[in-house]
Simulated scan of single mutants.
Amino acid sequence: MPISKQYLKSKPECKITFNLPAKEADQVELVGEFNDWKPAKLKKYKNGNFKTQLNLPVDKAYEFRYLVDGQWQNDPAADAYKWNDFAGDDNSVVSV
Results as ranks from 00 to 15, higher is better:
residue 79 D to I: 12
residue 83 W to G: 06
residue 25 A to W: 09
residue 22 A to Q: 12
residue 8 L to Q: 14
residue 47 N to M: 06
residue 27 Q to K: 15
residue 64 F to H: 04
residue 79 D to R: 09
residue 34 F to I: 14
residue 14 C to Y: 00
residue 28 V to E: 03
residue 36 D to Q: 13
residue 59 D to V: 08
residue 30 L to W: 05
residue 27 Q to F: 14
residue 23 K to P: 08
residue 55 N to D: 12
residue 82 K to N: 10
residue 15 K to G: 01
residue 88 G to M: 09
residue 78 A to I: 03
residue 35 N to P: 03
residue 80 A to Q: 13
residue 72 W to K: 15
residue 17 T to S: 07
residue 37 W to S: 07
residue 10 S to K: 11
residue 60 K to A: 04
residue 24 E to A: 09
residue 70 G to Y: 12
residue 64 F to C: 03
residue 33 E to P: 03
residue 62 Y to P: 02
residue 62 Y to V: 06
residue 39 P to D: 05
residue 85 D to L: 04
residue 22 A to F: 04
residue 78 A to H: 09
residue 80 A to E: 11
residue 14 C to A: 14
residue 33 E to I: 07
residue 25 A to G: 04
residue 51 K to A: 07
residue 82 K to G: 10
residue 21 P to G: 03
residue 22 A to K: 11
residue 52 T to F: 06
residue 68 V to E: 04
residue 20 L to P: 01
residue 51 K to F: 00
residue 21 P to M: 08
residue 85 D to T: 15
residue 22 A to V: 05
residue 11 K to A: 12
residue 73 Q to K: 15
residue 59 D to L: 10
residue 44 K to F: 06
residue 87 A to W: 11
residue 90 D to I: 00
residue 70 G to P: 04
residue 14 C to W: 00
residue 82 K to M: 10
residue 18 F to A: 06
residue 71 Q to S: 11
residue 74 N to E: 12
residue 88 G to D: 12
residue 37 W to Y: 10
residue 59 D to H: 14
residue 52 T to A: 08
residue 54 L to V: 15
residue 66 Y to R: 04
residue 16 I to P: 03
residue 55 N to P: 01
residue 39 P to R: 08
residue 90 D to F: 12
residue 21 P to V: 09
residue 90 D to G: 00
residue 43 K to T: 14
residue 89 D to C: 09
residue 52 T to E: 02
residue 81 Y to R: 15
residue 41 K to R: 15
residue 43 K to E: 15
residue 42 L to P: 04
residue 72 W to G: 10
residue 48 G to V: 12
residue 31 V to A: 05
residue 51 K to L: 08
residue 41 K to H: 07
